[in-house]
Design a binder for these strands. Structure first.
Lengths: 196, 196
DNA sequence: CGACTTTTTCCTGTTACGGTAAATAACGAG
DNA sequence: CTCGTTATTTACCGTAACAGGAAAAAGTCG
């Protein structure tokens, strides 16, 4: 279980509904962990079955009733035990890197387009991180432990996006510098192969 | 399919057996993609069923016979089509970051130990990247397209490891600076709770 | 009325991850 | 000769994760 622990970690901040969690996994923690609402709800059921969280139904008027989940003491303990185990370094698993590994067997034009899209994407994310950093930590220091963690995360995220964006730029430049000697072959295999 | 494409990408370099692929996924491409030998073999079967690769049995004396897999033209085409689609930016999914997100609800001592282990781990990897870079690209330039891709990958890897290592150092420093005001609670829940 | 938001749930797949284990075939240690 | 090791492939099991399609219920907005 890993997504489950991420949810528990989110619930340490405050009780939340599945709906809120899904939104959280779209912003704050979602910067480095992706999960759609179905995954969240399924995981919440499991966590409830194990007694790590407790759902309290809140009757609403004008909206469907919601289930606010709170960490139980067992859940807190489970999270602490999980956090006390050594972490496993995750591997990147980025499609783009696989493409680069097979650079001489693929078409460069789509790759170039992809790199440009990614460049924009990572620049956007970088700007977003910086924006949040300036807003939440104008003087660059954190007060409590909770803030410290988030400050560190934001800084790591910002640097990471910056680095990947730089990488995309560099790759594009290298590709351009090489495009002279490269044979440009359009992607139309299987149509006129064998018979020329 | 993503692991399958990574395997196809590996096979563009030269034909390989499942055993060799498993080793490759432990070193070169394995720097950013992890897969054990069972995953590899299972994926190879699928790729063969789809006609993307072709196995040729090589009789060996002294060792069991091996199956050398070669990309078929269909496999090359499939790889090119896959590579022509826009890549999906992967999310990090690092346990360590989840822990930092819940920093005020976990025990700092194990976290500190974890950070130190990770620091060493990322430093090792960084040194490894640099070593390969110096060996394969002493002058920092690539000749062919194949080399270009690998040079870029190695550089990205080196920078990434450097950055994460720096991050670990920074986090450790921040934790130390904060440890004065923090209440240290040993992880022994559930034993003496409820009855003092 | 229809479209949209909020909130939860169910369904069916595929892909990935993890561990345990075995079969074949040789080599070397004890 | 048995035991362990390296090389090489394969099998089975279970769970976790990812993807997409759907629907229900209750209200608001246009």
């Amino acid at each position: 279980m890993a997504l489950g622990d991420a949810i528990l970690a989110c619930l340490t901040e405050r009780p939340m509904t599945g709906y809120e969690l899904a939104k959280t996994f779209d912003s704050s923690i979602g910067f480095f962990w992706k999960a759609d609402h179905q995954q969240i709800y399924r995981e919440l059921s499991k966590l409830r079955d194990r007694g790590y969280i407790q759902g309290r139904e809140v009757v609403q008027s004008g909206k469907p009733n919601k289930l606010v989940y709170t960490l139980t003491p067992e859940g807190r303990t489970a999270l602490r035990h999980w956090a006390a185990r050594p972490s496993t370094p995750a591997s990147t698993k980025d499609d783009l890197l696989v493409r680069l590994h097979a650079l001489d067997s693929i078409d460069i034009e789509p790759l170039r387009a992809d790199l440009m899209a990614r460049l924009e994407h990572h620049r956007d994310r970088h700007a977003n991180y910086e924006r949040i950093l300036k807003k939440r930590f104008p003087d660059g220091t954190a007060e409590g432990k909770l803030d410290l963690g988030n400050l560190l995360l934001l800084r790591l995220g910002a640097r990471h996006e910056q680095m990947v964006a730089d990488f995309c730029e560099e790759a594009l430049a290298a590709l351009s510098a090489m495009s002279g000697k490269a044979t440009v072959v359009p992607i139309e295999d299987g149509k006129r192969e064998g018979k020329g």
